[in-house]
Simulated assay, not measured.
Amino acid sequence: MPNKLLILYDQPEDEAAWLAHYETVHMPIARSIPGLQKAVINRVDANLLGGSSPYFVITELHFGNQAAFDLAMASPENRAAGKDAMAFAKGKFKILAVSEQG
């Protein structure tokens, strides 16, 4: 049962413009999602197996339990976050619903 979202953002063409939008527009919308307990932004520094990383940022959105996750996913705030992601990162991200284990 998922209680967390992982959003994997691909490398953007213009890192500065991407980060400006992500930090000042997108994450304030995401942080307004009901039931969100914690948002963790991970900036990818390196691919330790060699080569460049396909990802630029990996965001974690944590919810307390399955019920909170379900309510959050159905919320207008979540729809607004999705709409914004499609505007600034269309085709350049993946969203995974995961269950945190131990």
Rank of each mutant, 00 (worst) to 15 (best):
M27P: 08
M86T: 05
A80H: 07
A68S: 15
F63K: 01
A30F: 09
N65K: 08
P76L: 05
A67G: 13
V25C: 13
T59R: 01
K38L: 13
N78P: 05
R31N: 13
A81V: 09
L48A: 04
H62N: 14
A74C: 11
E60V: 07
A80Y: 10
N65V: 03
I58E: 11
L36N: 09
G51Y: 02
G64E: 13
F63Y: 10
L36S: 04
I33R: 06
A85Q: 12
D45Y: 01
M73H: 12
L71C: 10
I58K: 08
S52T: 01
K83S: 15
N65T: 04
M86E: 13
N65D: 15
S75V: 14
Q66E: 12
L49F: 04
Y55A: 03
F69A: 05
S52E: 01
N47T: 03
A30Q: 04
I33F: 06
N78I: 03
L48Q: 02
I41V: 15
Q66G: 06
A87P: 13
E60F: 09
I41K: 11
R31Y: 11
G35D: 08
K38G: 12
S52C: 01
T59W: 00
I58H: 07
A87T: 12
M86V: 05
S32Q: 06
L36E: 02
A30Y: 08
G50H: 00
A87Q: 12
F63C: 10
P76S: 13
D84W: 11
F56D: 00
I58G: 06
E77W: 12
Y55G: 00
L49D: 02
S53C: 00
D84I: 05
K83F: 15
V44W: 03
N78L: 09
D84E: 11
T59K: 02
N65M: 03
I41S: 12
P28L: 10
P28A: 08
A30P: 05
R79I: 11
G82N: 12
V25R: 07
S75E: 13
A85E: 08
A87Y: 04
A72L: 10
A39M: 15
Q37D: 09
P76E: 09
L49E: 04
L61N: 04
K83Y: 14
F63W: 06
N42Y: 03
A46G: 02
N78W: 15
D70H: 07
V25L: 09
Q66A: 15
P34D: 03
I33T: 08
G50E: 00
R43I: 05
A67L: 15
A74Q: 12
A46K: 00
G64D: 13
A80I: 07
H26R: 04
A81E: 10
V57W: 01
G64R: 12
M86F: 11
G51V: 01
Q37T: 04
L61W: 05
A80N: 08
A30S: 14
H26L: 07
N47F: 02
